[in-house]
């Protein structure tokens, strides 16, 4: 419960919503599903702007790009038929494992960008898909998810995330999500998502994202650049990913120690790359 909440608004226009969010006297924040905000007990929140009447929900698959409206629920994503097929169902799998059915039915893509934790499966998957985030404050700004995650609250300050988009490729590719958790329905301790694009036996593009190894989900850019443009070699990919994992200094918490996370990163990262490659070749 939000102890100091005194106003609830459900505007029907974007300009009305932005006007409310721009107020300085009453601390006003966007409300999507509420699954993170409402139980946060954040005493600074005095007013919420419910985004549900702004038409920000829905998934569109265009010729080259996919658009996820910020208010799309995780369950809508998990049951989207194209998402279930594209990139080996990477996004639907990530949405399904990242929260229970009860939470997926209300939690949104936009809320997850702001509230998702350092091992959020959906964020790891979206990073691997090269997602970009569109934020509307006074003007519309689109930036890479990787950059956005450096300071989500600074980028949305007074604004609204309207959508997330990522390339919808029609050329051969493969993807995989590998996670380690206490039980399948538990939050991930460490996870990795890989996305590879083929060009014959060559690896044209690689994306590798990891969760649970740093204060936020990260991309393994050095692994990506070492593998891109080469003939694929499973052993080489594994070695490079293991080296990357060894260089990490993950945080320790109640779920796992830093050492455990580092060792598991060296397991999930090569596995995700190898599975993605195998799938790109049709298994």
């Amino acid at each position: 419960m939000l102890p100091n909440l005194i106003e609830y608004h459900r505007p029907t226009t974007m300009s009305g919503a932005l006007r409310l969010l721009a107020r300085r006297k009453v601390r006003t924040v966007p409300l999507a599903g509420g699954t993170a905000l409402v139980p946060s007990r954040d005493p600074s929140v005095e007013a919420v702007v419910d985004l549900s009447a702004l038409n920000l929900a829905g998934i569109q698959w265009h010729a080259q790009q996919a658009h996820l409206g910020a208010m799309t629920t995780l369950q809508t994503l998990a049951s989207d038929e194209i998402a279930q097929r594209y990139a080996n169902g990477l996004l639907t799998e990530a949405a399904r494992v990242c929260a229970t059915r009860h939470i997926r039915n209300v939690a949104t893509v936009g809320g997850t960008l702001v509230a998702g934790d350092a091992a959020c499966d959906l964020l790891v998957a979206l990073l691997a898909l090269d997602a970009r985030v569109t934020v509307r404050i006074r003007r519309i700004r689109t930036l890479a998810l990787d950059e956005f995650l450096n300071a989500p609250s600074a980028y949305v300050d007074g604004g609204i995330i309207t959508r997330v988009n990522f390339p919808y490729l029609q050329i051969p590719h493969g993807a995989a999500l590998v996670r380690i958790a206490r039980a399948p329905s538990d939050a991930a301790i460490v996870n990795a998502a890989a996305f590879v694009v083929l060009d014959g036996g060559m690896c044209k593009q690689v994306r590798l994202a990891l969760g649970g190894v740093a204060p936020r989900v990260i991309r393994a850019a050095s692994v990506e650049s070492e593998l891109e443009g080469r003939a694929w070699d499973d052993a080489l990919a594994a070695r490079i990913a293991e080296q990357f994992a060894a260089s990490l200094t993950p945080p320790s918490d109640a779920r796992a120690s830093s050492e455990y996370r580092r060792e598991m990163a060296a397991v999930v990262a090569p596995r995700a790359l190898q599975q993605a490659w195998a799938r790109a070749q049709g298994d």
Binding site: V38, V48, D50, N105
Partner: peptide
């Protein structure tokens, strides 16, 4: 849990106004 508009949801993480 309650069923809201056909979907099962947690009523504790949602404002009544939602």
């Amino acid at each position: 849990a309650v069923i809201l508009d056909g979907r099962v949801v947690n009523s504790c993480t949602m404002l009544a106004a939602q």
